[in-house]
Design a protein around this nucleic acid. Structure first.
Lengths: 242, 242
DNA sequence: TCTAATAAATGAATGCCGTTCATTTAGTGG
DNA sequence: CCACTAAATGAACGGCATTCATTTATTAGA
């Protein structure tokens, strides 16, 4: 149900607050009743939600806080969204538009997928609370997300992928990407077995020898390993093109 | 911080409620003060939480409902867990003990990994609200989870895996498994593009041709595709064993 | 053996959160 | 001109996790 107003989002929503710095509640109160010019719209709500998330994280994204950010009563939000989930949907769809799909077309299929996957993971690693929302999200409700799927699908088709395997392939890649996004947020010492170390000798040894490798964050090593395996394995499905 | 009392959990916690059907609040009230025999323990809390989840889902798992299930005041729970997160941890660790790792050892590495991954995904597909918890969970706090890692690590090592790549390989597989678990819960019509169908011709065509295939749930096709790619790709890391 | 500390329960209270509803005011279509 | 709808306010509501004072029972130490 999202309109494609996304081009306006991302900028600090000047329209909504008429230049007043958002969050600094204006001195004069707005009196009750419909204002001459609408204060809220979906683009403004999206931008304010993103600003709030960046400043206070997802715990800070409450309907009350969002209303304050927009200098509005909390109940006013419900004239534009049916529930908080709709706000998360707006944010999700905006973020998806930031995922880099530019490799599809010019670059070889392997490079296009690689660039897309890294970009996709990096965007949502900062927004893992959205992942449960995305997973159950009908694409109809998210036009930017649908646009991404279209670009990727075309890339797979042009690379010689059999049409009936494209969706499954994308879903498999996405599953790996979402799971890996969580991984980025894990604490560095997540695998320290502590007092139970002597009960788990093989695992403990594996953790220690992995720590010896010094190239970048461990989440990146696992992501690279899995992604290259997926690219190789899925790439084998392609037929030779005309 | 979980004790390894897990063997007792899983059964309907007779110890905690002394045979009275849990949930049917006893007629006589328990008076204030410490009772002669402890009413609560971690195994009982775990079993009651699982029972509640099975009956009402994760929305029904509230501290108040859990207390009622155990015929106890909500505040009593906080003598045994520091926060609701700890309850989820107890549940997670119990579920992990249900994951089938029996293939490691007897079966060839590929078959062992395949069986483990399917089992792991199936267990947590019913418990996706736990996934964000697992992702940030230090293994020290979950002995059963640690035991699973030990078994899997040994299986990889015995199959000729280089030690320093084992953790990354397991993490990559787990990421795919967790992402795929979400996928199972997705509605069947998630990819119906509806009114925007003509704007996304390649994707719409791909969705339709995939629907033509009739073998099992679409989530299973994607999981199988990705898992086989990962097994093939990761398997290539093995050295030839002595 | 008395006694202080600790453990485990009750019950009342707190603060936050998402959401609803009555009300007010402003634009809009017939 | 008038009914209807859209968009705001502000006051509620129920539910949630969590805390705290209090009571009672067990346990450790002098």
């Amino acid at each position: 149900m999202l309109e494609t107003t996304d081009e306006r989002a991302g900028m600090p929503a000047v329209s909504a607050t008429e230049g007043r710095p958002p969050g600094s509640a204006g001195t004069q109160r707005r009196r009750a009743g419909r204002p001459s010019a609408a204060v809220l719209d979906k683009a403004g709500i999206t931008a304010a939600a993103l600003e709030l998330i960046n400043r206070k994280g997802y715990d800070g994204l409450t309907m009350a806080a969002l209303a304050k950010e927009l200098d509005v009563a909390p109940s006013a939000l419900y004239n534009h969204v049916a529930a908080k989930r709709d706000v998360l949907l707006l944010v999700e769809d905006h973020l998806t538009s930031l995922v880099d799909v530019s490799g599809f077309g010019p670059a070889p299929w392997e490079d296009a997928v690689r660039g897309w996957a890294w970009s996709y993971r990096n965007v949502f690693a900062e927004h893992t609370p959205l992942i449960p929302v995305i997973a159950v999200l009908p694409v109809t409700d998210a036009p930017q997300t649908l646009a991404m799927y279209e670009t990727v699908s075309k890339g797979f088709l042009d690379a010689g992928f059999p049409q009936e395997r494209i969706v499954s392939s994308i879903v498999a890649l996405e599953s790996f990407i979402f799971g890996s996004a969580y991984d980025v947020t894990a604490p560095a010492d997540i695998f320290e077995s502590g007092s139970m170390a002597e009960a788990t000798p093989h695992f403990t040894a594996a953790v220690r020898s992995a720590a010896g490798q010094v190239d970048g964050p461990p989440a990146d090593a696992a992501f690279s390993l899995g992604l290259e395996a997926l690219i190789a394995g899925l790439g084998a499905l392609r037929e030779q093109r005309a």
